[in-house]
């Protein structure tokens, strides 16, 4: 449900973008989704055809680039991928970090004619 409404939101934003740039045909839509965001890329892909139905993007391909969730340990400064270790620093075993990447949720680019 969540992913579907996000797909609708994306379509709305894209409609503005194509209007501003006078684009007539979009080959592909590239999204950047961080693995720490609450979005499941597979569901996005499934919901996408429904949201683009009857729009300019009906035939556009959806590409999702997943961004790794990286944190920096506040104690020792070590940077590591958060998900495999459930947030615990592999260096000092403390779960206290600043997120460096992985919360992205961006329409990155359009490939168009």
């Amino acid at each position: 449900m969540h992913e579907l409404s996000i797909c609708y939101t994306i379509v709305e934003t894209l409609q503005e973008v194509v209007k501003e740039n006078e684009i007539e045909e979009v080959e592909a839509i590239v999204l950047e989704i961080g693995e720490l965001s609450s979005i499941v890329p597979k569901y996005m892909e499934n919901c996408f055809p429904c949201a683009v139905d009857g729009t300019l993007f009906e035939k556009s391909k959806l590409t999702i680039e997943v961004v790794e969730g990286i944190g920096r340990c506040k104690r020792c400064g070590y940077s590591y991928r958060l998900l495999p270790v459930e947030g615990y620093c592999p260096n000092c075993d403390v779960k206290d970090f600043d997120v460096i990447s992985g919360e992205e949720f961006i329409i990155k680019e359009l490939i168009c004619f």
Binding site: T9, V17, L31, I106, I107, K108, L110, I111, C112
Partner: peptide
């Protein structure tokens, strides 16, 4: 082959909302 271009959007998906 048709020519294509890449348009950088870089917009947050929530921006509209």
């Amino acid at each position: 082959m048709k020519e294509f271009k890449i348009l950088e959007v870089k917009r947050s998906i929530f921006e509209n909302n």
